[in-house]
């Protein structure tokens, strides 16, 4: 009995001493149940949380998702009228940590960019940046949709203003 245990112990030490095994364990753990550290970082310190007055002429608001699905994202942009550059952004999100992180990243990425640039942001870029697992890909899609919705809202508002000016 004791001999058997000793033999088992030796085998164990062999496994533990190898270099490949612990690395494989860590990788497997991260993908199986871990959030990527960037997700955690954005969740703990979300950038640009808050709201603009949605009635301001230079603000575009995008609200996407549904409470019943467990995700609602509101993303707002403030646009510099003549240049079409996004000078500031805010978000509020009801959803999992990945949804919060996706919207936080989205606000960071749109700031300082032209509107035509930000509508080209793809969900896959956000997903890659945050290493989202397949079940969380919809969070990045929501973020992409929210950006587009905010730009669309701003343009619709501008169109309406132009019409009323005529």
């Amino acid at each position: 009995m004791a001999m058997m245990l000793r033999a088992a112990g030796k085998r164990l030490l062999g496994v533990g001493g190898g270099e490949a095994a612990p690395a494989a364990v860590a990788a497997a753990t991260a993908s199986r149940r871990g959030y990527h550290e960037r997700v955690v970082e954005h969740y703990n310190n979300p950038r640009n949380v808050g709201a603009f007055d949605k009635d301001d002429a230079d603000v575009g608001t995008g609200i996407v998702g549904a409470p019943a699905c467990g995700d609602v994202m509101k993303l707002q942009i403030r646009v510099d009228e003549p240049s079409g550059r996004i000078v500031d952004a805010r978000f509020k999100t009801f959803g999992c940590g990945s949804a919060i992180a996706s919207s936080s990243v989205a606000t960071e990425w749109v700031k300082g960019k032209q509107m035509e640039e930000v509508v080209a942001i793809k969900n896959t870029e956000i997903a890659k940046h945050l290493s989202l697992p397949p079940v969380k890909l919809h969070c990045s899609m929501l973020a992409e949709d929210a950006i587009k919705a905010a730009v669309k809202d701003y343009e619709a508002k501008k169109g309406k203003l132009a019409k009323s000016d005529e």
């Binding site: 549904a66 019943a68 609602v72 978000f91 009801f94």
Partner: peptide
């Protein structure tokens, strides 16, 4: 940071909104 809480506090009935599913 919840848009739903913000709407509820503003007196908006969340059930009256047509959400994009």
């Amino acid at each position: 940071m919840s848009p739903l809480y913000e709407m509820a506090k503003a007196g908006i009935d969340l059930k009256s909104i047509e959400w994009s599913q």
